[in-house]
Design a protein around this nucleic acid. Sequence first.
DNA 1: CCATTATATAGCTATATAGTAATATGGTCA
DNA 2: TGACCATATTACTATATAGCTATATAATGG
Lengths: 110, 110
Amino acid sequence: MARSTLPPEMLALIAHRLRALAEPARLGILNQLRTGERSVTELVEVTGLGQANVSKHLQILLGAGFVRRRKEGVHSYYRLADHDVFRVCDIMCGRLEAEAGARRKLLRSS
Amino acid sequence: MARSTLPPEMLALIAHRLRALAEPARLGILNQLRTGERSVTELVEVTGLGQANVSKHLQILLGAGFVRRRKEGVHSYYRLADHDVFRVCDIMCGRLEAEAGARRKLLRSS
DNA sequence: CCATTATATAGCTATATAGTAATATGGTCA
DNA sequence: TGACCATATTACTATATAGCTATATAATGG
């Protein structure tokens, strides 16, 4: 899986996918989906975002393949496509903890 | 390491870090640093980007903690802080391959 | 000191996009 | 059919930022 080098087109694709994740509102939506599928209205209620805004974020996440949609009558239920998102979040959280640790160490030694 | 839930402040921090990665030019710079440290001029040559542009990207990567800097005389040498970036890229590459596979499958069955 | 080179920053323009209000689309039920 | 709901889309504004040019900062050699 590990690549020695990444061609420009691949970098562009990766960047495009990451861009879909690099938004607090979208991460919040994905975080809500962690416990199961939700309708748009439910996501509006639980996130406090506007309906149009949630819908737009969901289209972006859908386009980037991070969520899947199931239509049932008048409702659209969204669910996580997989858990890659949280693997990425865990890596970032690890970074944040490392940074916090480094800061503590710096403070103690000063 | 896995979290059951992520508080809003953490989501904002994660999004901010991801944003630093979600740019083809910056991924390209990081990709170049994969084989070792490089000066700004070297990065300008190898990426084909403008000097001011490279410098700005490097400040962003430095601020987000993805690279470290070593100053020697009139030069600034940048190197990767760690390899988390490529773990993230690998996850995204895996997604891209899965998507390509799904597309192929779809085409074949149609 | 001055010229030169390397890096960083400031100011600018063009583009992308988050958020909102209004509207469109489409299903459901009386 | 027509009223009502959930969702999607459009049009707009405000903000962020990639990339550029010009300039500032800083080290080094003459």
